[in-house]
Design a protein around this nucleic acid. Structure first.
Lengths: 233, 233
DNA sequence: TAGCGAGTTTGTCGTGACGCAAACTCCAGA
DNA sequence: TCTGGAGTTTGCGTCACGACAAACTCGCTA
């Protein structure tokens, strides 16, 4: 096993509760794997043999419905744990994770979780906090889908992407990984057609700038206003 | 503090990882409180001073949007943990819990969580499993809201209520707590009008039987078929 | 027992967004 | 440099569903 350096993960909030020695313990169970763009890290329904910490790149997590429709659950950004099905007592992954750019991830065997937990109880808290954040996100999305019309949902989705993976460029802030209209549609429960229309309209207004699998937000503040919408005050 | 009996919770899956002694430790931190119908157990935005285990009755958990709209997140049934914000590293409750019938709950101070965890590490696993289940639920709902039309969402919601709180009665299976059309609407992201129309139609077909804050499912199987819908096979 | 109000039903109408369809653009590989 | 295909744009018809509105019903309280 290659020697993984503490510095890889010591700075991650995920491991902030661990001392140097404990971090070494975690690393001794981990290996680092490279996933090239488009490759599948784990698959919905497959046995949850590993869990992961993303070091570099971006993943898309997708759920497939019985009818074959896809819904984008989230994007994983560096520093996050993912594929943590075991921790929640699941034997199978509930979704599929795909690399949207070349990525590198720490891989840990699910079977090592109990012993890791025994030696580093702080990991349980990290896991709980992580899952808690995701639960909040999921509930937020439920609330948005219940109460907001499509345009505002798309605005919220973009703003969330900006927060997670926004990169400053000349024209504004760009989503730092390739993302299609279809992807946005699957995040917001609409169709790529509607997303395309909305983005076109926004582009006309100078709010965003489109492109092939590319979105640049030129005016985040105005987008925010739009996302908050007009409460029936 | 009144003496709480082990038998109160020993049989709950939530505490299956604990031995008798550990259960006593948990109970020594707990008190039992009665909430009468309509009373608020905790409020969205309020300090997360306690966490709970429902012993008897039913609670409705609701999120309020900035614009004042309500969304029903879930119903709590006996045996479940709820209000577990601390466990996820939150200082405030993300939603409001209200008793829909007279209820009894175990109440534990959030401040006692760290020491409890130290003495009963198995609690972390219980908490993770609990949160994991909720995360699955939330994602399922996101997927449903993204891909299904209203009628099927309502069908799914009813089936879930039946599974959680179905009580066999003469005419079929009844949701065991009072629930209005409005409540169902807030669970499925629609309006009470639409829910009323759908239930009326179903009643005509002998699928369900309505009533004031009452729903009886007469033909669960046909409702299931309807919920699964016609995939574009 | 009368009256009130919360919960429910039903009708009409308007429209946001989906489905279908076709054309366009740009990048990648031959 | 040419060509194919994936991603995107745009138009048009339609419909499911929400908004508005009004009447009804039942259970509780005075």
């Amino acid at each position: 096993m290659s020697s993984l350096d503490r510095s890889l993960i010591a700075s991650l909030p995920l491991f902030s509760g661990l001392n140097g020695e404990e971090i070494d313990i975690v690393l001794s169970h981990a290996r680092s794997v490279r996933y090239q763009k488009g490759s599948v890290v784990f698959e919905q329904g497959g046995p949850a043999e590993n869990f992961f910490v993303l070091l570099h790149g971006n993943l898309q997590v997708v759920k497939l419905t019985p009818a074959g429709q896809q819904v984008v659950i989230r994007y994983v950004v560096p520093g996050e744990m993912f594929g943590i099905a075991v921790q929640m007592g699941r034997a199978r992954y509930p979704a599929t994770a795909t690399a949207v750019v070349d990525s590198v991830s720490l891989v840990l065997a699910s079977s090592s979780w109990p012993s890791l937990l025994a030696r580093c109880p702080a990991l349980a808290e990290s896991a709980l906090r992580t899952v808690g954040t995701r639960l909040d996100d999921a509930h937020l999305r439920v609330v948005e889908m219940s109460t907001e019309e499509v345009e505002r949902r798309v605005a919220h989705a973009l703003l969330r992407l900006v927060k997670q993976a926004g990169r400053k460029v000349e024209e504004g802030i760009q989503i730092s990984f390739p993302i299609s209209r279809e992807d946005v549609a699957q995040m917001t429960g609409t169709t790529l057609h509607t997303v395309s229309r909305i983005l076109s309209a926004w582009e006309t207004q100078g709010l965003v700038e489109g492109g092939r699998q590319k979105i640049i937000i030129r005016d985040p503040h105005r987008l925010f206003i739009l996302a908050e919408g007009r409460p029936q005050a």
